[in-house]
């Protein structure tokens, strides 16, 4: 994408890696983040995934400099930026609410920052045209944010971030205000625009599908602690904690109590029907979703969820089994047990 490369930061600054070392933040008695270690390579997109209140937006604010950590360091390339004020950090952030200046037109929203930073008029005009074309905002130049749809506002916010030529891109749930269909459409576009350049991208979301679609690696957070950081495949096939196993994968993984106190987990899509052996189950409810169907089962070992092909007819009583390699075992505290 030649237009994208004129905007991306590789042309102006060397690609830098982002590193968080031992970041902690507390507000009063509440721990927001506890000893967080993260590394994002140049051009990589890292998703911060987790439920509300897990500290992912807080991490973003710490990287941008809007808040300060209580301990730990933030490194951009070789530089320690922990003490640097936000205006000097050269980061661009797309807020959840987009934070477009309501009293300015789209063109002015985009060009004002560059003017303030002292960019000359010719470069402003050229970059403005390039980014408007890239994000298909050409006809919306003179409109005010109030006259734009949600998707258009998001693109303007993204354009503003691109024009910043930052060393890090930060996105705080940028798609949460959009409807599901628009999200599906925009996801690949967003990835193509952002993850091509040299700047690392940190993407906060609570939606695992979005994380898996956009990011190269995913960091799962719970209550301020990093649970696991890895590719989507790693998180899916080898969850390090029970929390990760339950958070990744839809429908949610089945968890069964073992007699020795540990927990056995099997994904609903890894169950299959057998003629003999296995577990006797009774079908409680079924949801047919076209390509697949989701069933709630009642068994001697507790309730189970099962996902199978939509074309099959399932009776009311079946026998269910699963391959041993699809089992995950966790200690009572949530830590993974199997090697």
């Amino acid at each position: 994408m030649t237009v994208s490369s004129t905007i991306s930061s590789t042309t102006t600054s060397a690609a830098t890696a982002l590193q968080l070392e031992g970041i902690s933040r507390r507000i009063g008695a509440r721990t927001i983040l506890e000893d967080l270690d993260l590394t994002v390579s140049p051009g990589e997109c890292l998703a911060l995934l987790g439920p509300s209140g897990c500290g992912k937006s807080s991490t973003l604010r710490l990287i941008s400099g809007l808040d300060s950590p209580d301990s730990g360091r933030i490194l951009l390339g070789e530089r320690d930026i922990t003490a640097l004020p936000p205006a000097r950090r050269q980061v661009a952030m797309v807020f959840q609410s987009y934070a477009l200046y309501p009293h300015l037109s789209v063109a002015r929203n985009l060009s004002l920052g560059m003017e303030i930073r002292g960019v000359d008029a010719a470069t402003i005009a050229r970059d403005l045209d390039a980014v408007l074309e890239l994000l298909q905002l050409g006809e919306l130049r003179q409109r005010r944010p109030a006259d734009l749809s949600g998707g258009q506002r998001q693109r303007v916010a993204l354009a503003r971030a691109l024009l910043r030529r930052p060393q890090v891109f930060l996105l705080d749930e940028p798609m949460s205000n959009l409807d599901a269909q628009l999200r599906e459409e925009l996801r690949p576009q967003l990835r193509a625009i952002l993850c091509g350049g040299g700047a690392p991208v940190v993407y906060v979301t609570h939606d695992q599908q979005e994380a898996m679609g956009i990011a190269d690696r995913i960091a799962v957070l719970d209550a301020g602690r990093l649970q696991q950081c890895g590719t989507a495949r790693e998180l899916y096939h080898r969850p390090a904690t029970l929390f990760v196993a339950q958070f990744i994968g839809r429908p949610q993984i089945n968890v069964l109590q073992e007699p020795d106190g540990s927990l056995l987990a099997v994904r609903p899509e890894h169950l299959h029907a057998v003629r003999e052996g296995g577990l006797q189950v009774r079908v409680v409810s079924r949801e047919w979703q076209g390509a697949s169907q989701q069933l709630q089962l009642d068994t001697a070992r507790g309730p189970l969820r099962w996902v199978c092909d939509g074309g099959r007819t399932i009776g009311d009583a079946v026998r269910i089994a699963w391959e041993p390699q699809h089992e995950h075992r966790f200690a009572a505290g949530g830590r993974r047990l199997t090697p």
Partner: peptide, 27 residues
Amino acid sequence: LPRELEESALLEGFGLWQRLRWILVPL
């Protein structure tokens, strides 16, 4: 005025007087 508006301006490199002059006072 929403806090994020000013934070966005801050990250774009606006100084205090610039934030007041261009973003906050007009609003």
